[in-house]
Simulated scan of single mutants.
Amino acid sequence: MPNSITNRGLTLTLTLVKLPALKDVGEEIEQLAHRCSHWLSDDELARIGRATLPGLSMRQRLVRLCLRAELARQTQMAPEAFRFDYGTQGKPELRRQQGGPFAFNLSHSGDLLLVGVIRAEDDGTGKHNRGLYLGVDIERKRTNTDINAIYRHYFSAPEQAYLASLDNSLKRDAFFDLWALKESYIKATGRGLAEGLQSFAFDLNLASLRQKEGFTQFYQGLEPKMLAREPNCTQWQSWLGHIDSDYRLAVTLGAEDKVSVEVMLNQRPLQSLLGEYQS
């Protein structure tokens, strides 16, 4: 049974990093990645080494380096100090002895990487972060995706009905909004697709639009509604933000109690983020 967290000082930081294209890394980035490679653990290097597509190995290396650099920035620890465990569906988390006052998750789409970190003030017990579940997802609106085939097969009945009611000019945006939200939830639970995409639903009609720096549109007041099973005691809340006309991101946070969260979006150049922690 996880310990309770405090309801004070929760900050959710979303950091966007533009990655070089798979075939356009360049010598400067290669040298930077090489100088930072000592941050990575043996298991990370093994995972990276299994990549076979051209450029994919370097992309995965840069993703892991950016994650470590962002965690270091949030915690004041050295990037190489972190050790990770992985859930049954591959979700990374810090080993328990490194628990710290945060939870994290990451996602990338196209050439954009998103790292989400939720932080809570230390209440002196060392237990305040237990029971935090965070999932983030970033999606690029793709014009060649057959959205009708996907949502009719994978989405819940209420979501299918909602999308079917929309004019075609609105449906694609709404589909990717829901897709990002659903991905963020199944990543937060750590169960991945084993969660069953039809077992829960988001209602975009319940979203309230708010002004938020860094977003063209930002919505809150969303939470997944369980349909196929009894809900557990975890309290879920989600946010949806449009970065521009193509990219949107979604975040889902679970906690034992309803908590108030300040959401912040930062955009960091790759060279700046990694260069800050070079020895």
Rank of each mutant, 00 (worst) to 15 (best):
S208Y: 06
K212I: 00
S199R: 14
Q198F: 04
K182M: 03
L193G: 03
F202V: 02
F176P: 05
G190D: 09
S199P: 00
Y185P: 01
K187A: 08
E183N: 08
E213R: 15
Q198S: 14
K212L: 11
A194F: 02
G214I: 09
L206N: 10
D203C: 14
G192H: 10
E213Q: 13
Y185M: 00
K187C: 08
F200C: 12
S199E: 11
Q211N: 12
L206S: 14
L209C: 14
D177E: 15
K212S: 09
A194P: 00
R191K: 15
T189K: 13
W179N: 08
S208W: 03
K187T: 02
L181K: 11
F215L: 10
A188C: 03
D177P: 08
K212F: 01
L206F: 04
A180R: 11
L197H: 13
G214A: 12
L181V: 12
L197I: 07
F200L: 13
A194C: 08
N205S: 14
F215Q: 03
K187H: 07
D203E: 13
W179F: 08
L193N: 04
Q211C: 05
E195Y: 15
E183Y: 08
Q198N: 02
R191Y: 09
L178F: 05
D203A: 15
G190C: 13
L209P: 00
S184D: 03
S208M: 12
L204E: 01
L197W: 02
D203N: 15
G192Q: 11
L206R: 15
F202L: 04
R210G: 00
G192R: 13
R210A: 04
A201F: 09
Y185W: 11
A180V: 02
A194T: 10
F202Q: 05
N205Y: 01
S199Y: 06
F176D: 06
L181G: 06
K187Y: 01
G196P: 00
L193M: 12
